[in-house]
Design a protein around this nucleic acid. Structure first.
Lengths: 344, 344
DNA sequence: GCTTGAACCTAAAACGATTTAGCATTTTCG
DNA sequence: CGAAAATGCTAAATCGTTTTAGGTTCAAGC
């Protein structure tokens, strides 16, 4: 990493240190000293200085300099947290790629990157506010802190928010409350009298909403609250342990709505360990956030966000926003997808 | 996307078009026209021109301008294909971020992102050759074309290649051939006499290597080649169909090495459908590239790349390379991780 | 002694955006 | 009416790098 403590090191620093011009330094850095006939001794001195001073090239400057005025470059970002799973992000990525490829040509290029922030600290992301990183972004998996930040800020470029409802932004999300409602409907129609909802202790906004809506729907139909089974985390292991405890305590349970497929997988294990059948004794409904939910044993019935549709909408919005200048706020609701499989 | 066909549009184009200075245009673009007291009529004219001309800001220029000379900025990239899963790269990202955070201070900042290229077209990635995008990169999921490109090019910044063996580069990968060898060992020791290897039709370099080494190891031990069961794709569905066909044809099979956990999941289904037991009738070994391999039913025994170790090594190499100036070539082999579970 | 050419190096102009300092006007107000 | 303040805008500097078009010196050739 070298010293560089005192001053930032630029080509100019090096040039002064050696006693040559910046042109000479640049020539050496680009390894063009042969064709430009710099004296070997000079080259060596410059190289030594570069090493000694710990020079780090400024990529922004290089990029600007290397820029070809004939093509304009669109920098697209997919912003998510370090903590969240990448299931949705990878779908977004592919859809962005598809749209970008279709629009690429001479004179127009796209770069797509995934940038991660620490949950709740979106505001600290360098270049977000100064608009010096992206021409357009899709933001997802935000925490309330991040939402507050976004709501309070009008970013001067195209922004699409995925899965959250924010004033002054273009938002694409599944119809609020609908997932929990439909999940309850499926379990109740399958004659579950004591459906429970399996959630992690720390709820995200979406999981909280699913659980709320589920409980509300059961209350509306059955007239009483369904039990909440709280897992320590969102891993299968945590889900298994929580449900095992619930069943072990002899509490009623003939239906499980897991707000995450990972938890559903844990539920499967707990149910099987208890010697019960799925869905014979206990029906299970997941949300379809696991790649291979159709390969669980038995295949998992899911009521969850219709990811294809959401992603398609979001990406379409992004490109539309980049086309016109004004970032109009809008809310787009996508109804959940219901996939009946064997588990309920 | 607007016209912009004829000329590249910059703030200057807009300024000339409206008849104001670039300062005025910039002010409007940054939404600072209130505090800088531009006349509303002017603001509207500028906005109209911005829209009409299809202006796209140049992020490199913005970044350069926004640059604070007191801090030097390191741009780190994790390069992967659009097509590859994000499982490994997200681990890399997390590890890079961890190291970067530890080195961040006043005067030193890092940006880390996952950047996408089209498989086989790494060379087309803008800024790679001109060194105008990254101060250091970790490259993964390359195709042979990409490897050829890398082998022929000496990029003038820190490069670590993950999972491939390239001359003149710093490479980190799992010990060649070891995965297939260990997988064969496990199946044979479990008294499998007719182990098969389940692969997708289109092999990646790693999957091809695993299959080769497996076949070679079985041949070495048993004196004859093990069957290859070829699936149409790498999805569970494809794996299930392929193995079903193999079993249906009455061919011998009492052990499966699936070069991908997705295929293993498919194998599970085919085996269960055939009324056989795992591992009683057919043992299965996967590679551990699935997040929840320990929650398959039965939990999947895996011999696969030791991702933690590989990632840790690769990231450590990246930072070391960035510290010293000269990029030395090196090869680092990481032995596979073996996780015995219930399936073999 | 003068020209020519090689060898080695530099000044300055880009690249595209933002901001600071300041210049004209016009309005306000004592 | 004249000074002060507000209004609306611009010129020019700046960020760090690369490259083009030369400029100087020195040695060789006539």
């Amino acid at each position: 990493m070298a010293r560089g403590e005192k001053r930032p090191v630029t080509v100019r620093t090096i040039a002064e240190h050696v006693g040559v011009s910046t042109a000479a330094v640049s020539t050496v850095l680009a390894n063009r000293h042969e064709e430009r006939r710099l004296a070997p001794a000079t080259v060596e001195k410059i190289r030594a200085a570069v090493r000694e001073l710990g020079y780090v090239p400024n990529v922004a400057a290089r990029r600007l300099r290397a820029h070809d005025p004939e093509v304009n470059h669109h920098e697209l970002g997919i912003l998510t947290t370090f903590e969240a799973p990448l299931f949705l992000v990878s779908r977004v990525l592919r859809q962005v790629q598809r749209m970008a490829d279709a629009r690429t040509g001479p004179g127009r290029r796209f770069s797509v990157s995934i940038d991660m922030f620490h949950a709740g600290r979106l505001r600290e992301m360098p270049g977000l506010l100064s608009a010096s990183r992206f021409n357009g972004v899709i933001v997802t998996n935000t925490l309330p802190e991040d939402d507050a930040f976004l709501a309070a800020t009008a970013l001067p470029y195209a922004v699409v928010v995925l899965g959250r409802r924010l004033p002054n932004h273009c938002c694409v999300l599944d119809t609020p409350g609908e997932i929990g409602r439909r999940a309850a409907e499926i379990l109740l129609k399958a004659d579950s009298r004591h459906p429970v909802v399996l959630t992690p202790a720390l709820l995200t906004q979406s999981t909280a909403e699913r659980a709320e809506a589920f409980v509300a729907a059961v209350r509306g139909q059955e007239g009483r609250d369904s039990a909440r089974v709280i897992a320590a985390g969102f891993t299968p292991a945590a889900g298994a342990e929580a449900l095992r405890a619930h069943l072990g305590a002899g509490l009623d349970c003939d239906g499980v709505f897991a707000v995450t497929d990972g938890l559903a997988l844990g539920a499967y294990q707990a149910i099987k360990d208890a010697g019960k059948g799925i869905p014979r004794d206990i029906a299970v409904v997941g949300v379809g956030d696991h790649e291979h939910a159709d390969f669980f044993d038995p295949p998992l019935t899911c009521v969850g966000p219709s990811n294809e549709a959401i992603v398609e909408q979001a990406v379409a919005q992004l490109f539309q926003l980049m086309g016109q200048r004004r970032g109009k706020a809008s809310e787009i609701f996508v109804p959940p997808s219901v996939v009946r499989r064997a588990s309920a």
